[in-house]
Amino acid sequence: MSLHKQPELKEAVLNLPQKEKDKLLVRLVGKDKMLMKQLHFQLLEDQIDLEDRIEKLKERLAALFVESRNSVKNIPVYSNYKELQSLIRQASGMINEHEKITKDKYSEVDCRIYILNQAFTRFPRLFEKSAVHSASKLHDYVRARIKTTTAKFAKLHEDLQFDLQAPMEEMTVFTMEHNLT
């Protein structure tokens, strides 16, 4: 139930003594892990911490793709399509969490381009035309990720776009060559 739909409750909460509101706020924040992470970032971290977070995220993404050598092969068979889609989803989840906490659009786009380019570079045969159903599911999923990434890239300031131009062009060239647009 939303507080917006109960204006009398909202008014009553706002009229509570400050000490009582503080207690309620601390209790409520403790029940939502994402809210705790967001508040920690907003209240206790600075630009250096953001750079550390970005670096750690990139390291985790790189490690994820290195570890994928054990589970995903560049051979167009059902299991590899499924595993690669799972890998990209896992990496996307890591980026989603980072963006929800930091609200940093540049690093979000940078990392999204990175995971797509890693997938294209490491597993190019999995993006060739195939009659396997899991291949079309992977390709559809990747098309959606490309569309989202391109839209987010377009919203960045032109100076930030310039910084990401080379990896973005690499992604675009691959998608054109493999008809993923």
Rank of each mutant, 00 (worst) to 15 (best):
T149R: 00
S2Q: 07
Q42W: 08
D104G: 03
K73P: 02
V142S: 00
Q42G: 06
E55D: 14
L9I: 10
D140V: 09
Y81V: 01
A12P: 04
E170D: 13
A135C: 10
Y81R: 00
K105S: 13
E8V: 08
M176T: 13
E20V: 13
D49Y: 05
I75T: 13
A131E: 14
D104N: 12
K129S: 10
E83Q: 11
N15S: 10
G93K: 08
Q161L: 05
K100F: 13
V13W: 06
T149K: 00
A135F: 02
R27P: 02
F120D: 01
I48M: 15
K37A: 03
F153W: 04
D159G: 08
L16S: 02
R125N: 14
K155N: 10
S2F: 09
N179L: 07
A131P: 09
S134M: 05
N80H: 05
H157P: 02
F123C: 03
S68F: 04
D22S: 15
L84R: 02
R60Q: 15
I48W: 13
K147G: 06
H139R: 08
L28S: 07
L24G: 04
V173Q: 12
H139D: 04
T121W: 05
F120L: 05
V142F: 00
V173T: 14
K129R: 11
D32K: 03
V173Y: 12
R60C: 09
H133F: 14
A135P: 02
H40S: 09
S79V: 11
T149C: 01
A63V: 07
D104P: 03
M94W: 04
F153I: 02
Q38E: 08
L39A: 04
A119F: 01
Q85E: 11
Q85M: 08
Q42T: 06
N96H: 09
F174V: 03
C111N: 10
S130Q: 01
A62K: 12
L28T: 08
R53F: 04
F162M: 11
K103D: 05
E45I: 03
A144E: 14
K152G: 02
T150V: 08
Q47S: 14
K129Y: 11
S86D: 09
L57G: 00
R112E: 06
E67D: 15
K105N: 10
L84A: 05
K129L: 07
D52R: 13
